[in-house]
Every structure is written in structure tokens, then in C-alpha cells.
Design a protein around this nucleic acid. Structure first.
Length: 116
DNA sequence: ATTCTGACAGCAA
DNA sequence: TTTGCTGCCAGAA
């Protein structure tokens, strides 16, 4: 099955998926937090990139729980409809206004702190 | 092989 | 204060 194309366990991406899937219900985190947890440090962009390809993953990635450090739903447009991400988060008890999470710090979930 | 982009973050002016 | 530029790493053209 063309495993030749498969990288070595997706290394970086697999970690991003794992952490993202570990985000508890009603919790949210930031790209930088995940990137920092992965050890990539400031390459938070890669986290977003990984989530971008997360659609290729058969597993459901709660990418809607991942936002930028400002709590802004930057990638909402990637959920099909711009309102999908907002609906999902609100469904989990996250308060969103103007595509921004109001209780961001309250429900913030730090992988490096929670998972460790 | 080189160049550009990308769901960010940090720092400078 | 706000605005904008650079830096980060990895993948696609």
C-alpha cells in the first residue's frame, strides 16, 4: 500500500494529532502551547499546518479546540463553514464573540502543563 | 535544488 | 497603543 510514501510515523504531525485529540471536552489550547510542548518551540505555524492536513487523518481531530494565542478562531474558515467552528465550541460551553473566545484563559488547556 | 506558502508568535518601530 | 516585519519548520510547486 504505497507505504513508501509514508514518513516515519509522521513524527511531528502524529504528535500534533495526539495532543489535539487529548484536549478534554470544553477545553481549548493555542498553537504555541502545542508547538512548545512538541519542542518545536516557536514554530507554532507547523502546528496549524499539521491540523491543516489533519483532514487526511481518518481520526477526528478536534481542531476546533485549537486557536491562536489570542483565542481567535483563525482557522474557522477551514471547517467548511465559517460558523462550524464557532458552533462546535459553543456547543462545548465555550463562549465566543466575534470569532474570539471570551473565556479563553478560563478554559485554556496547556499540554505541557496538563499532559506534561 | 530553490522558492513560497502556511489555521502563529514574538519583537521592533 | 497599534501596526508590521521577521523567525520558525515542514511540505508543495
Amino acid at each position: 500500500m504505497s507505504q513508501l510514501k509514508q514518513k516515519k510515523n509522521d513524527d511531528f504531525f502524529s504528535k500534533v494529532y495526539e495532543v489535539t485529540k487529548c484536549i478534554p471536552y470544553g477545553r481549548i489550547t493555542s498553537y504555541g502551547a502545542i508547538a512548545r510542548y512538541l519542542g518545536t518551540g516557536r514554530s507554532a505555524r507547523m502546528v496549524g499546518w499539521a491540523l491543516n492536513v489533519s483532514h487526511s487523518n481518518q481520526e477526528f481531530i478536534p481542531a476546533h479546540r485549537v486557536v491562536n494565542r489570542s483565542g481567535l478562531l483563525t482557522g474557522k474558515h477551514h471547517f467548511g463553514n465559517s460558523t462550524t467552528m464557532k458552533q462546535l465550541l459553543e456547543n462545548e460551553g465555550i463562549i465566543i464573540e466575534n470569532d474570539r473566545i471570551i473565556n479563553f484563559e478560563e478554559n485554556f488547556w496547556d499540554p505541557g502543563k496538563e499532559l506534561k
